[in-house]
Simulated scan of single mutants.
Amino acid sequence: MKQKLNVNQIPALKQEILDLPEKEKNQLLIRLINKDQVLIEQLHFKLLEDEYDLIKRFEDLKAEIETTLKDNFDSIINSKYTDKGKLYLRMIRNLSSRINHYAKVTKDVNGELRLRTILLIDSSAKYKSIQNEDSVIGYKARLYQVSKIKTMITLFGKLHEDLKYDYSDDFYESIEDTIVSNLQIEIIQSKLKYKTLSNE
């Protein structure tokens, strides 16, 4: 496998690039940025948006999560038994990837944690019969949710102390209800210390 080149590993090339005329450097920069859609969104957010845009991004994605879970309910529940779990798992993975994208663009740890919490609570409650079914795919769905709780614990550790208290007040009780009623066995198996999220 051919090794990827890194400009920092070729000092002479790096210096030649830095010495290019300003106009030529700018053209190269724009051309490279245009090849990376996530970078374009990151720059747009950083350079052109403010706190109100962040709130809108959060609320839009929150609404998308809630709407997707609601609008797909009948079609998933009424699908063939062998397809229900697969469709459910695919849906929550897709929604989780939307949260990943939000986090990449905004670097908003608090918003990411809250969105992941909303997805965990709402999906586990609304699709409880599928997530708790005694099948391989049901088990996979529960393990997937536990993996997201691990992510949430990591994010919680990055929050400012004031935000930790706000988060615990707003969400922890709901999370605990979800865990106790839906994911307790997998939590125990994973030895996951989810009570960290309570900030006690």
Rank of each mutant, 00 (worst) to 15 (best):
I130L: 05
I130E: 03
I130N: 07
N132M: 12
N132Q: 06
E133N: 14
E133D: 12
D134M: 05
S135I: 01
V136L: 07
I137R: 01
G138A: 02
Y139L: 12
Y139C: 00
Y139F: 08
K140G: 04
K140T: 08
R142F: 08
R142G: 07
L143F: 01
Q145N: 11
Q145Y: 12
V146H: 09
S147N: 13
S147F: 09
I149R: 06
T151K: 13
T151S: 15
M152S: 04
M152T: 11
I153G: 14
T154H: 13
T154L: 14
T154K: 14
L155C: 04
L155H: 01
L155R: 02
F156C: 05
F156W: 10
K158R: 14
K158W: 05
L159M: 00
L159N: 08
H160D: 14
H160I: 11
D162M: 08
D162K: 15
L163C: 10
K164S: 06
K164F: 02
K164C: 06
D170R: 13
D170V: 11
F171G: 12
Y172W: 04
Y172E: 04
E173I: 02
S174V: 03
I175H: 03
I175K: 01
I175E: 12
E176P: 02
D177C: 02
D177Y: 11
D177M: 09
D177E: 13
T178G: 00
T178W: 01
I179A: 10
I179P: 00
V180A: 02
S181I: 04
N182G: 11
N182R: 06
